[in-house]
């Protein structure tokens, strides 16, 4: 029973990471540069270094890539400034 659960978990993890690899390759070739101009001319070493993180955390990068816009930082002051600007 426990073996089946753990094996199932590992298969799910494998599928998630495989999807991450499929995401990471085009993301690092093209997408990263669209959301972060510093990544556009990034070196191969840089791409290699961030690759494992992209594979592991790809869902966090889907949104910014789709919108072609970097995530905006949230903080009490930044939020209040934006709210004040709208008023």
């Amino acid at each position: 029973m426990l073996v089946t659960i753990v094996e199932g978990g590992l298969v799910a993890l494998g599928v998630y990471l495989a999807a991450g690899v499929l995401f990471a390759v085009p993301f690092l070739l093209n997408g990263a540069g669209r959301i972060d101009q510093d990544a556009a001319g990034g070196s191969r070493g840089f791409k290699l270094l961030v690759f494992p993180g992209v594979v592991a955390l790809w869902p966090l990068l889907v949104g910014p890539w789709r919108r072609s816009r970097q995530r905006t930082e949230r903080s009490p002051h930044r939020d209040a400034a934006i709210a004040g600007d709208r008023r």
Binding site: A32, I35, D36, D38, A39, G42, F46, L49, V50, P52, G53, A56, L57, L60, L61, P64, Q70, R71, T72, E73, R74, S75
Partner: peptide, 16 residues
């Protein structure tokens, strides 16, 4: 370790 590059700070934003 995988998110230690500045790329991650800029794109996740520092609070995240």
């Amino acid at each position: 370790a995988a998110t230690s590059h500045d790329f991650w700070l800029a794109n996740l934003t520092a609070p995240v």
